[in-house]
C-alpha cells in the first residue's frame, strides 16, 4: 500500500518527561485517520511531532517518500504538511486575507510564481464567510470564523496532508456542521489526506476510514472505522 505518512517507533518528550513511546502509524494516500483517546494521552503532542514543531526523540518519520525526522516545521510545511493546531493560533494582528497569505509560504520551492498567484479561489469557495470578512483582523473574529480561517490558512499552502487538532472544539453547533461539511469536501474534492484529533466518536467514525487510540502515550489500538464499530473502542476513550 502507498503510504503518505509513516511513523516508525516515534517517541517524544517535553524536557525530561517522555510523552510518546514507540508510536507506529501508517496513513495511506487519500486516507483519513482519526486520533482518539482521553485528555492528556499525547494526541496533540503526536500531531505536533508529525508537524515538526515538537522534536521526535527517537524513531523515524517518513512523508511522501522521504525521511523528514530531522526536518524543521517550515521544511515539512513546504513538503506538503498543513497544520491546524489546537487553539487555532490565528495571527490576531493580521487581517483574514493576510492570515491566508501567510499560508502561501508553504508553496515555496514548489513551482515558480505560485505565491504571487495569491489565495486560491477554492478556499473562499469552501468558506464563503472568509470572503466576506477579508479585511477584518484575526483577533476580532468569532471562534468559528477563526477555525475556518485556520483551516483556510493551512489549505493555502496546498498541502497533501492536513493535520487537524480538534477542529470543532468549543464552536457553536451550527458552525460545527459547516466546518465538518467543508472538511468532507477537502477530502473528497481536493483529495487531501487527513489526520484528525477528534473527541467525538460519531464524527470520527463517519469522517475517517481508520482510527488510532492512544493510551498513556502509546498506541493502544488501531483499526478500520469501516469494519469495526465505535462502541468497541468507546471504553478506551470515555472516562
Amino acid at each position: 500500500m502507498d503510504n503518505l505518512l509513516t511513523l516508525d517507533k516515534v517517541s517524544a518528550a517535553y524536557g525530561q518527561s517522555q510523552v510518546l513511546w514507540d508510536i507506529e502509524l501508517n496513513v495511506p494516500k487519500g486516507g483519513a485517520l482519526a486520533l482518539i483517546g482521553r485528555n492528556g494521552v499525547g494526541k496533540t503532542t503526536l500531531l505536533r511531532t508529525i508537524m515538526g514543531v515538537q522534536r521526535a526523540t527517537a524513531g523515524t518519520i517518513r512523508f511522501d517518500g522521504a525521511e523528514v525526522t530531522r526536518h524543521g516545521p517550515h521544511e515539512r510545511a513546504r513538503a506538503g504538511i498543513g497544520f491546524v493546531p489546537q487553539g487555532r493560533h490565528i495571527f490576531s494582528h493580521m487581517t483574514v486575507e493576510e492570515n491566508l497569505a501567510s499560508g502561501l509560504s508553504a508553496l515555496k520551492g514548489r513551482g515558480k510564481g505560485m505565491i504571487s498567484q495569491g489565495i486560491p479561489d477554492h478556499i473562499y469557495d469552501l468558506f464563503p464567510k472568509l470572503a466576506q470578512i477579508k479585511a477584518r483582523k484575526g483577533g476580532v473574529l468569532s471562534g468559528g470564523e477563526q477555525q475556518q480561517l485556520a483551516i483556510g490558512r493551512a489549505l493555502a499552502g496546498q498541502p497533501k496532508l492536513l493535520l487537524l487538532d480538534e477542529p470543532t472544539e468549543g464552536i457553536q453547533p451550527n458552525v460545527v456542521q459547516q466546518i465538518e461539511a467543508a472538511l468532507r469536501r477537502v477530502r473528497e474534492e481536493l483529495g487531501v489526506t487527513i489526520v484528525i484529533v477528534e473527541q467525538y466518536l460519531d464524527f470520527a467514525w463517519s469522517f475517517a476510514d481508520s482510527y488510532c487510540v492512544l493510551l498513556r502515550g502509546r498506541t493502544e489500538r488501531q483499526g478500520s472505522t469501516r469494519t469495526e464499530s465505535a462502541s468497541e473502542v468507546a471504553h478506551l476513550v470515555n472516562v
Binding site: M51, V53, H74, A77, H93, M94, A101, I115
Partner: peptide
C-alpha cells in the same frame, strides 16, 4: 511580502514555521 512574514514570526513563531515560513 517580507513584512508579512516578519509580522507572522513576531506574533507566533511556531505557527509561522508550521505555515512554511523560514523563521
Amino acid at each position: 511580502r517580507i513584512g508579512l512574514l516578519v509580522r507572522a514570526v513576531n506574533q507566533d513563531r511556531m505557527m509561522a514555521a508550521a505555515s512554511g515560513i523560514n523563521v
